[in-house]
Amino acid sequence: MSTLNIQKTGTCCRVIGLQGDSHFLSRIIAIGLTPGCEVEILRNRKRQPLILFARDSMIALSRKESENILIKAL
């Protein structure tokens, strides 16, 4: 088990868990990142928000928020 923020650009993974307060959960679920969802990392560089590809959409996610997304590499 690992978190999203440390995944390298180009890796594919599956969301297996979320942590954080209910405000964060509600926002991250509403944009489609729920357990089971497949995610491809399109961009992950220091001090820049991540760009992901999930559920047919490109999603920008701040680094702090991405620490709360638990994943399993595929």
């Binding site: 405000h23 926002r27 944009i31 999603i59 920008a60 996610l61």
Partner: peptide, 10 residues
């Protein structure tokens, strides 16, 4: 206070 969670539309 919450970070960015945003779609980048095509």
């Amino acid at each position: 206070q919450y970070g960015m969670i945003m779609e980048l539309p095509p």
